[in-house]
């Protein structure tokens, strides 16, 4: 196994001359769950897309499993942001999941029995097997998210890149998704997920990348998920909660109400 699943060196990406990622260096540990966190517009989606070769960087190199993305492609799966597609598209759940097999099928060949049974297996893993023939516009947000996850599972990859897989899902779906992620980790696969809810980062993830145009910190959650780092990323207005910074145990004990403004004086200094 390679020592790093994903290696990013000096990555700079600009849209219309405005840099949205600046000189980002990153090493993603294989076999771990890594969260990418940062405020809106921090470049989290752009970082994922750059790794996938969907946006061309102004500078920098990216290696996936020690190779270029093109060479590693068959071992990478992608869960895009749920809002990136038109869910009114005339197609069924099974059809969308089958798209995960297109990469290995190659040109013109259609998915057959074998692909279909793999797709159904993936749907089962995310608890959506009963919805195989449902039209996708009739799904709830959480169900859409699980369909995208199933499509990635069908890709049978070693590295999974997910853009806000928990966005807009209910508590039950969130647990189901977390279970899938842990199962992937047990198999030795690598998962990188953009994650919005800071309070669950220590519970769900092993490593974290804190990003705001620049990479502010990356490493094991216990080391990098400090109030200091988060304050740098979020510019002082941290949309999070007492007790998050400093480690997993504190977060699990007392989840305060989300989105509460930070009271700096009252906050006990976390260590």
């Amino acid at each position: 196994m390679t020592e790093t699943a994903i290696e990013v060196n000096d990555l700079t990406v600009a849209y219309h001359e405005r840099p949205v990622l600046w000189d980002v260096d990153l090493r993603v540990r294989p076999g771990a769950l890594t969260a990418i966190v940062g405020p809106n517009g921090a470049g989290k989606t752009t970082l994922i897309k750059a790794i996938l070769g969907l946006v061309s960087p102004a500078a920098g190199q990216i290696r996936v499993l020690g190779r270029s993305y093109r060479e590693a492609r068959s071992e990478v799966a992608y869960v895009p942001q749920r809002g990136s597609v038109d869910w009114d598209f005339p197609t069924s759940v099974l059809d969308v999941v089958l798209m995960g097999t297109y990469g290995s099928l190659g040109w013109i060949r259609r998915p057959g029995k074998r692909e279909e049974s793999r797709a159904r297996e993936a749907l089962e893993k995310v608890g959506m097997e009963a919805f195989a023939h449902r039209q996708i516009s009739q799904l709830s947000g959480g169900q859409q998210q699980r369909v995208f996850l199933a499509r990635a599972l069908v890709q049978d990859a070693r590295v999974y890149l997910m853009d806000e897989p928990f966005q807009g899902v209910d508590a039950r779906t969130e647990r189901a998704i977390v279970d899938v992620l842990r199962e992937l980790r047990e198999r030795g696969d690598t998962v990188v997920a953009v994650h919005h809810a800071l309070q669950t980062v220590p519970e769900y993830f092993d490593d974290a990348v804190i990003l705001n145009v620049r990479r502010i910190a990356s490493g094991p959650v216990g080391e990098v998920f400090t109030e200091e780092n988060l304050r740098v990323a979020y510019g002082g207005r941290v949309p999070f909660l007492q007790g998050v910074a400093g480690g997993a145990s504190a977060a699990r004990d007392s989840p305060p109400p989300p989105e509460s403004p930070v009271d700096r004086r009252a906050r006990p200094e976390a260590t």
Binding site: L52, L54, D86, Y102
Partner: peptide, 16 residues
């Protein structure tokens, strides 16, 4: 299948 993927989710398409 290529046209369908292009129409539904071109970015995922590019990623595969």
């Amino acid at each position: 299948k290529e046209f369908k993927l292009l129409s539904f989710d071109p970015e995922f398409g590019a990623s595969v």
